[in-house]
């Protein structure tokens, strides 16, 4: 559906270098990367808001350079929602339909229907600046969906939302994707990516460093920087069964026991911090490990002696 072939683009100090990727129809594709890596530019290239310097972008097989932005049928929802502040929520939602000369009655009907399904029907007469983040987010989503786009682009749509709104919005998106919409979602949140992505690309300094199946990318990072970005806290140089390289272990995959058991290493707890429902411990077993536990999984304090169990499945070599 969307194909990037060796696409490069430089904008001021920033450059996107030799990006190739392909996004299939009906996919939920997540682009991840640290701030300033070029995620938004990648989205705007898909939408047609920039022209690439080199390389080819294809949408449904045809060269995207030939299709003007307004004819692509690709809607974008920005991080700050980009609602038009001088229009009511209703006028915002109807904006795209108006441009397509859909009859007024049909516009109103579809607007009410969408607003109803996203629970913002009571806000239609309000101006965007009076909405809360979650409400504005839904209004922006309704506006994008009103034009029945073939592809929905989301640029960190949840970064400004509180936890509760984020959860409901993630549920909204899951529903939309189930209905067959192709979604390309840019985020730096691992949690969002994990709960939504079918396929993932990780971008760093303007280069796509990994693309692949979400499950595979998250569990088997290809290099240390990616592993750190994906939340592998414990990375050591070492040998595992004759293979030399870096050993990556997620902190939540490590188990602690008060008594010695099979395949465990003795160690000392150096620190133990409570963070919400979690207990983050550092344990010295010769190397210092970070271990994340549920608060109820044992009452380990700094200084206690523990036995560390690292299951085979938790160890990833790069």
């Amino acid at each position: 559906m969307i194909e990037f072939e060796d696409v490069s683009l430089s904008l001021g100090n920033f450059a996107l270098k030799n990006c190739s990727l392909s996004i299939g129809e009906g996919e939920y594709f997540v682009i991840m990367g640290p701030s300033g890596a070029g995620k938004t530019i990648l989205l705007e290239l898909i939408a047609g808001l920039h022209d690439s310097d080199t390389g080819v972008i294809r949408i449904n097989g045809s060269d995207a350079a030939e299709i003007p932005v307004e004819k692509r049928g690709i809607a974008i929802v920005y991080q700050d929602y980009a609602l038009f502040p001088h229009m009511t929520v209703e006028a915002n939602i109807c904006y795209g339909m108006q441009r397509r000369h859909i009859p007024r009655d049909e516009q109103k009907r579809r607007c009410r229907e969408l607003a109803g399904s996203f629970g913002i029907a009571h806000l239609l007469k309000r101006k965007p600046l009076t909405l809360s983040g979650g409400e504005a987010q839904r209004a922006a989503l309704c506006r994008a969906l009103a034009v029945k786009p073939s592809i929905l682009l989301l640029d960190e749509p949840y970064s400004a939302l509180d936890n509760q709104s984020r959860k409901t919005c993630i549920a909204d998106l899951k529903k939309l994707h189930k209905e067959g919409l192709t979604v390309v979602h840019v985020t730096h949140s691992l949690e969002e990516a994990k709960s939504l992505a079918m396929r993932v690309a990780i971008i760093r300094d303007g280069r796509i460093v990994v693309t692949g199946d979400a499950e595979e990318v998250f569990t088997q990072p290809k290099d240390e920087a990616t592993a750190r970005f994906l939340g592998f806290e414990n990375i050591f140089r070492g040998d595992v069964i004759g293979r030399r390289g870096r050993v990556c272990i997620r902190s939540e995959d490590i188990l602690l026991h008060p008594e010695e058991c099979e395949n465990s290493f003795p160690g000392n707890v150096l620190s133990a911090d409570i963070q919400g429902a979690l207990r983050i411990c550092t344990v010295d077993i010769g190397e210092v490990l970070t271990v994340t536990l549920g608060k109820r999984e044992g009452d380990y304090l700094a200084g206690s002696r523990v036995f560390v169990e690292i299951p085979d499945s938790a160890v990833h070599m790069i």
């Binding site: 808001l49 307004e70 004819k71 980009a82 904006y95 441009r99 034009v147």
Partner: peptide
């Protein structure tokens, strides 16, 4: 007037002149 507001309008099907007339100018 933030450029991405104009961008959003473009993706919704507005030509550059329509974006100017309906978004940029009123703001």
């Amino acid at each position: 007037v933030p450029v991405h507001l104009e961008n959003a309008a473009r993706t919704l099907g507005a030509s550059p002149f329509t974006v100017f007339r309906t978004v940029t100018l009123p703001m």
